[in-house]
Amino acid sequence: MEIRIITDNYTDSLGLLAEHGFSCLIKVKDRTILFDTGQGEGFINNIRLMDIRKADAIVLSHGHYDHTGGLSKHLAECAEISKDIYASKYVFDNHLKMDDGKTYDFIGFGGQRSEVERRFRLHLNTEMTEIFPDIFLSGTIERSFEFDSDGKLYAEIDGVTAKDRFRDEQYMIIRDNDGIHLITGCTHCGPENLINHAKKLFPEQKILSLTGGLHLFRSDGSYTEKVISVLRNEDIKTIATGHCTGIDAVFAMKKALGDRVHFTKAGMKISF
């Protein structure tokens, strides 16, 4: 299996652009999957330079602009990659960010549903779904532990505005002979909840790797230490993270867990 980071907040590769967003290309067995589409311009620049022309499916982890923007802004170009989109049925939820304590900015998918439905085949779920053999989407993530990933994030659902519980968020699970690999977009549910949920879905499987954002950049150091403890106890061998994890949290994880932790950057390849 190979994971190639297309979009991240950082890069050190000639010609590639960094932007606040996440996207990766996953090659496993005979399948190629585009997981998230970044924010927009950086994503399109990078897939051109990387000469990415083929994917069997597009997966959207949740409906924030920095994971769907490359799709909503560049529908025609993305349509050449795949016409099948897998996402939560709540992916078009009205995600908001409180700007100044009084007003909200829209940070969701935008008014794109009719255009997306016209150009693509939408496969929407809420429960765990096997999209290809041994490749699963988690469905809505059960919260066993409280975690407020970001005090600024809200959602308007059925006319009511409240703290966003991210009912549209899900992650990908890839199963092989030795265990499972987890790929996540932002982990707004909290890393502890994501790992606990994966263990409930696959109770007999060891978690081999965790790739993607862990949304710790607005969390205090004590919670980062708690996450490090969970990762250490699970003995996850490969943790590739960046984007919304935040530089301080990544370095704290790397200091505690050593070579198991890899700081993701656009252009990076991770092989298993």
Rank of each mutant, 00 (worst) to 15 (best):
I81K: 04
R218N: 04
K163F: 14
E204G: 00
K97H: 08
G42N: 10
I5V: 15
Q112D: 08
I247C: 15
L194T: 12
R119M: 14
C186D: 10
Y65P: 00
P133G: 02
G42W: 09
T68S: 12
D176Y: 06
E2R: 08
A162D: 15
Q170M: 10
M172Q: 04
V230E: 05
S144L: 08
E41L: 11
I6M: 11
T241C: 15
S23G: 06
D235R: 13
F43S: 10
K200S: 05
F166S: 08
F92R: 02
V116D: 03
K255G: 12
E156L: 08
K73V: 02
I141G: 03
D150E: 03
E2M: 08
G21Y: 07
I173W: 00
G111Q: 10
I239R: 08
K89T: 10
D259L: 07
I47H: 03
E204R: 10
K54Q: 11
D178R: 08
V230M: 03
E142C: 09
S222K: 13
D220Y: 10
D66G: 04
D30S: 07
T7S: 15
R232G: 12
S222N: 11
N125M: 12
L208I: 01
H62N: 03
A266D: 03
I228P: 09
D248Q: 15
E117R: 03
E130Q: 06
V250R: 07
K102L: 15
F145E: 07
M98L: 12
F217C: 05
D134E: 04
I270C: 07
